[in-house]
Design a binder for these strands. Structure first.
Lengths: 238, 238
DNA sequence: CAGTGGTCTAGACCACAGT
DNA sequence: CTGTGGTCTAGACCACTGA
């Protein structure tokens, strides 16, 4: 599958995003004005604005009429409520992912929280779980379900320290477009999850149920997350 | 300054949004195509597309190249993660708001979770709390802090069953533009909050700390929420 | 194939912030 | 005042869907 053409606004977005993340701009700094960016990259203003819209929607900048685009700091993975430490910010360095249960083809759980199409029910799903650790400490346990539709050799893939989204994009041409999630606070669930997250049974835990949209029509990813927020909060913008 | 001119794309967005919420379109229905909407409302395509972008970002529609804009099912939880959800209570009837502590001018709490500018510290803040009830049952306890900057007669206002955002917009010309939040699961906090939410002391509760951006430069609203998710999930899109 | 949304251009006028 | 971002127009070509 070819990488696919990258839109100009997207390329500019990623360039500016990298500059912000890498610290070329600091919190409170002004980005070049829209007209300056036009000249710098040989683009027209709507295209530049679309790139800035993305940065704005993801919280990297805030725009102010008459002033400019102000850098707002902050990391954020695509569509994820990223983790933010209570004391120190978390870079990509100390974030680790371990596969606990490797992908297996199975049928959907009877108590699955999302309604499934007939097609999804019929083909069953890949099921696998991963543990996210911050500075070596377990924080998020992620149970993923992917409909078993045209993903050859997926069960053989190693997901450790790799982005599931990147694998889906590069190997299968599937792009994540967004999603929805339901969030609850619960007391720690089954004992095995407690031990994986290294928490006592009565610990309060965040429980997230997510359905993730892709560029394939009627193809969704599902995941259920348990998150120990004792040391870190989930962070989101809106 | 008067209520402020409403942009064309915004007007179209609100019209379509109302049609979806009112059930004129159902889940899975196709919206009129972009070109049809252009003709119907005498707008150009970029303007129409901007309205659709808003609907898309808030989860009301999903667009598919070659197919059209598909109406998405409405969220069943409480849309506190999305900006539009708080004002109009998507998907939930019987949402009620009661003021528990009326607005009082005070100083900022010593353990305030967000860093404040010197100006904010100097002027102090309005503090008030509200309780959100769904079908008569308490669900969210909302502790709000607003910097005491040029908001005449605010303490005299009645906030019951009114949108704080609407009051700020109509009476003071302040528009909410977005915000950020930190989310944790905790065991139920102080006893008075437990009794207000009608929960036992060991109940797990969602804890949200939010900073909300406005169209006024360096003017933010702050609120701390405790949410009993025993009966309802919080819902969000990304 | 026709129609859809996705991207992009090249202009225009306005409202607001800082000087 | 100048320069900023906010809004809007009127075209164009492409990639994808469904028939």
């Amino acid at each position: 599958m070819s990488p696919g053409r990258i839109p100009l606004y997207r390329a500019l977005y990623e360039k500016l995003r990298r500059h912000i993340v890498d610290g070329l701009y600091r919190e409170g700094d002004l980005l070049p004005s829209e007209n300056e960016l036009c000249k710098l990259h040989n683009l027209t203003r709507p295209t530049v604005r679309k790139a800035l819209d993305l940065l704005n929607n993801e919280g990297f900048i805030k725009r102010h009429q008459g002033l400019g685009s102000v850098v707002h700091k902050l990391p954020k993975g695509i569509g994820i409520l990223s983790i933010s430490g209570t004391t120190t910010a978390i870079g990509r360095d100390n974030l680790e992912t371990r596969t606990i249960i490797k992908p297996v083809l199975t049928s959907w759980p009877p108590d699955f929280p999302f309604s499934l199409s007939d097609n999804e029910k019929e083909v069953g799903c890949m099921n696998f779980t991963r543990l996210r650790l911050v500075s070596g400490k377990p924080v998020i346990y992620d149970i993923s379900y992917i409909p078993n539709i045209n993903l050859p050799r997926f069960t053989a893939r190693n997901l450790d320290n790799k982005s599931l989204f990147n694998i889906l994009r590069t190997a299968y041409g599937i792009e994540v477009k967004g999603g929805e999630q339901y969030i609850k606070a619960i007391n720690a669930p089954e004992p095995d999850i407690c031990s994986i997250l290294d928490i006592r049974p009565e610990t309060p835990v965040l429980h997230l149920q997510r359905r993730i949209d892709t560029n394939r029509l009627n193809f969704y990813l599902y995941s259920i997350l348990y998150c120990n927020t004792g040391g870190h909060s989930l962070y989101g913008i809106f």
